[in-house]
Design a protein around this nucleic acid. Structure first.
Lengths: 166, 166
DNA sequence: CACACCACTTGCGGATTGCAAGTGGTCTGA
DNA sequence: TCAGACCACTTGCAATCCGCAAGTGGTGTG
């Protein structure tokens, strides 16, 4: 519990990398967080990145085991699970916001997919906190906050999509 | 140049992950940034995490190719290269600071190695900016700033080490 | 109750990783 | 000047990880 399994150091940056430093873990968290995809099927079918089904199953298992996601059975479909963010993964919001901001500056992102990152960057810490409060409502059962950052991000994204489609 | 080679999406978070989402790239950047290790040998020998020599060589090559490090020959040793951060990797400071902050909260880091992360977290954006200015001095030849965040971080780390050793 | 559906697994070929040993250019000192 | 130490980096190999496609078995439905 206290010691890493990989024989690497106790540096907090390293330990974070050991949990999240692969190509898919943060993609899954991103889709749950910003896309509100809550089940295996939604995550698989609507994936922008085309994640393979076995990798998705493996990551859901690992992220659940390490406390970044929680899983509860779907009352409507006994076989199905509903995945939720935990407080730990909700606190990744600033990290993902910074990743988006860096990617916007130093890679060649598509315009539509940059809109959310841009809003998050411009909104800064106050917006992140409002978003985190909303995620606590959506995933942890906290009370609904006044502001829906999720809706704002989604609306901006859809507006960009429509603008592109014209 | 504009399009990713992996067939994944143009989401800025994804593109950032494609460059940095592996177990070693950010470790190398961390060591150059916070440990001021500037050559292959320093990075290999003093690595806390025990990176393998071929992996290190590969990452230095990839990071240089993608513009996150630059390499110039060492005037003292013709064979040797001196690696420097670029503006792009200097702008990873907030990301690494957040990773450290998250790791401090949600993993079990060692006390000594957490000291820097704690300072960076408490200092917030003003400290990050001062540190980035200093990195521009150390790596890009900009003028020396008044404040040495690097020295502060190092002193705090060594103090923690001494405290532990008593 | 047959059938479609869906969450998840399995098999397999190819890429990546880690380790240990090797290679060849570069500096040093007698 | 040249033998030997040193050092940046490569190579070989085994183990693991990854991506793809097909399969499996539980679950809902008409």
């Amino acid at each position: 519990m206290a010691v890493s399994q990989t024989g690497r150091s106790g540096c907090p940056i390293n330990l974070t990398l050991e949990q999240l430093g692969d190509r898919w873990s943060l993609i899954v968290i991103r889709d749950v967080m910003f896309g509100n995809r809550r089940s295996y099927g939604e995550l698989l079918a609507q994936s922008e990145e085309g994640i393979a089904s076995n990798i998705l199953a493996d990551r859901l298992k690992r992220l659940t085991a390490s406390g970044l996601l929680s899983r509860r059975p779907d009352p409507k479909h006994r076989q199905k699970g509903i995945y939720s963010l935990t407080e730990a993964s909700i606190q990744l919001v600033p990290l993902l916001a910074h990743m988006g901001a860096w990617g916007r500056r130093h890679t060649r992102p598509s315009k539509e997919l940059s809109v959310r990152a841009e809003l998050l960057e411009k909104g800064g810490a106050p917006l992140w906190n409002a978003f985190m409060d909303e995620l606590r409502h959506l995933h942890l059962g906290a009370s609904r906050p006044a502001r829906s950052v999720f809706g704002e991000l989604q609306a901006a994204y859809e507006k960009a999509l429509a603008h592109r489609a014209r």
